[in-house]
Design a protein around this nucleic acid. Structure first.
Length: 286
DNA sequence: TAGACGTGGTT
DNA sequence: TAACCAAGTCT
């Protein structure tokens, strides 16, 4: 299966900015942070701007958190921006401004988990590493296990499944990893897989089984309207848009439920996404 | 370990 | 239209 994925990817890979020659491991790390739970189309312009502005970890670490959060814009989950900022500081001071190239050092960085660490190894350093994201888990669930979808993560088993698909050679394995993700992203999609365009259809266990429907547990629907996440987003939007610290009244206007608003404002302060000045006004953190 | 954590496009 | 989905991590 790896050979099929390899040939298909070489012929059909999307031209994404962070895949272009010359992208540094730092550029890859930035892209992976931004792509956590966020679609490619929304990441592209922000990533381009980011790399021009902050081409190295140390350059980025020197920026203020307010500048970082404004540059992050409405990418979502802004705590990722803060974690990337903290990770850059560690890289600059403890790793000589070079993104680590071993799993343990990478996973020790804030905001870097099992997926991101291996993605950096594979796409930043051309190394053989089982890269397991939601796309790859779906591809493996179908093509290897014949299931309709992936179901809950089985971390160790997922890593082993993907590891078994990778060729020995580092450079080739890295491309296969990119190919498996690409396959899940553009062909073996969650809702309406384009099996007619699939390079592994001849060896796909799901296809062979007659494409049975997924029968495992469904992840609970994640609401948004009315949640603290929405309120935090509203409050942060006010702070991002303001050039000067804002009065509490400006934040009060962003959400009518006072108790929820206060709770969310407090949580933003605790998370380091906002701060209160001595005069009582609020702003993005310095 | 289940749930929190942003945002917006698609079906 | 409401629900689903998008290159996860942390607690």
């Amino acid at each position: 299966m790896d050979g099929l994925v390899l040939d298909w990817f070489r012929a059909h890979a999307r031209d994404l900015p962070w895949r272009r020659p010359g992208t540094t491991p730092w550029g890859v790390l930035v892209s992976e942070f931004m792509l956590q739970q966020t679609p490619v189309a929304r990441v592209e312009p922000i990533w381009l701007d980011w790399m021009t502005r902050w081409p190295t970890p140390s350059a980025f670490a020197a920026a203020s958190r307010a500048d970082v959060l404004r540059a992050w814009g409405k990418l979502g989950y802004p705590r990722r921006a803060l974690r990337l900022h903290a990770a850059a500081a560690v890289i600059a001071t403890e790793h000589g401004d070079a993104v680590p190239s071993d799993v343990d050092a990478l996973e020790a960085l804030p905001g870097v988990g099992s997926y991101t660490a291996r993605a950096v190894l594979a796409f930043g350093y051309g190394r053989r590493a089982p890269v397991v994201d939601t796309n790859v888990r779906r591809v493996v669930a179908r093509a290897v296990h014949g299931a309709g979808d992936a179901g809950p993560a089985r971390t160790r088993a997922d890593l082993a499944d993907v590891d078994a698909l990778l060729p020995d050679d580092d450079a080739t394995a890295a491309v296969v990893s990119a190919g498996l993700m690409e396959l899940g992203a553009v062909v073996c999609t969650a809702r309406a897989p384009r099996c007619g365009d699939c390079p592994v259809i001849a060896v796909c266990a799901w296809q062979a089984a007659g494409r049975p429907a997924y029968d495992g547990p469904r992840k609970p629907a994640q609401g948004f309207a009315g949640t603290d996440r929405q309120v935090r987003g509203r409050l942060l939007d006010v702070l991002r848009a303001a050039t000067d610290p804002v009065e509490r009244a400006a934040l009060d206007a962003a959400w009518s439920d006072a108790a929820q608003r206060d709770r969310c404002l407090h949580s933003l302060l605790v998370d380091g996404l906002a701060e209160q000045h001595d005069d009582g006004r609020f702003a993005l953190p310095a």
